[in-house]
Computed example of a mutant assay.
Amino acid sequence: MTDWAAVIDATWPAAARRSHGPWTIRTGAGGGNRVSAATAVAAVGLDDLDSAVSAMRDLGQEPLFMVRDGEDALDRMLADAGYIIRDPTVIRACPTASLTTEPVPPVTAFTVWPPLAAQRDIWADGGIGPARLAIMDRVQGTKTTLFGRIDDRPAGTLFVAIHDGTAMLHGLEVATHHRRKGLARHLTRAAAFWAQRQGAAEFSLLVTAANAGANALYADLGLAEVGRYHYRALPKEKS
């Protein structure tokens, strides 16, 4: 059984993590929800909630909690305390080999580490800036980026890393004027070919539930839903 929390933490790590009572508190360093949210490691109560809130505010971060499958009591407690749902997210996965049955067109995708300036520009245009690039640098395990080209022009990029035999794709971005040309599909397959060469038997990624287009693409590629999580945060006027 894949430990999805461990895969996410290893392939998209926070700047720092520490235990704080029944919580794991993350220092996000501006890298977004996934590296900033607190997670419960044991049953929690309202006093524990107040303690976690104080710890996150001491870091200069908004109080933010990740709620995973099965954490219904935590979800109810946060809801009762006024925390609202943010970014429901689907975990998708499949055997790596199932994504490597068709070749990727020649000169479409290239493995590159560290990422090129052209990749950084594509990410920046999609809202993935230095704080998220720093997350990629922090990954300690096997990792790479994929650089996609169409008509011999820079067109897309992604990051992929491996933990305990499972590859996880992050940060897939296709330049606006190159979308709807099949590049996201080609890059995903290319990442799976790379993962297979590294010995990863399972391939996975995260996608927000609201991203209907991406969910349709990944489902068509055979990446099945294997889990979900969401965040809870105070409304902006109360945070």
Score class of each variant (00 low, 15 high):
153 R>V: 10
176 T>V: 14
79 A>M: 06
87 D>N: 14
174 V>N: 01
66 M>I: 09
6 A>N: 11
24 T>E: 02
93 A>Q: 10
192 A>S: 11
126 G>Y: 06
54 S>Y: 04
59 L>W: 08
52 A>I: 04
117 A>D: 15
105 P>A: 11
9 D>F: 06
76 R>N: 03
195 A>I: 06
161 A>R: 10
74 L>T: 13
186 H>G: 00
110 F>H: 12
75 D>Q: 02
9 D>S: 14
140 Q>V: 08
227 G>P: 00
153 R>P: 00
223 L>H: 03
19 S>R: 14
69 D>N: 07
60 G>E: 07
171 G>Q: 14
104 V>I: 07
228 R>S: 04
192 A>I: 04
143 K>N: 13
11 T>K: 10
46 L>A: 15
9 D>A: 15
187 L>R: 08
202 E>K: 11
97 A>V: 12
2 T>R: 13
98 S>K: 06
159 F>D: 00
229 Y>L: 09
25 I>N: 02
46 L>E: 15
237 E>V: 12
73 A>P: 00
202 E>T: 15
151 D>Y: 05
131 A>E: 15
32 G>Y: 02
160 V>K: 08
111 T>R: 13
43 A>D: 12
228 R>A: 03
203 F>D: 08
104 V>S: 03
185 R>K: 11
109 A>P: 04
170 H>W: 14
105 P>Y: 04
55 A>G: 03
80 D>E: 12
152 D>V: 05
15 A>E: 09
237 E>H: 10
138 R>W: 12
180 R>K: 13
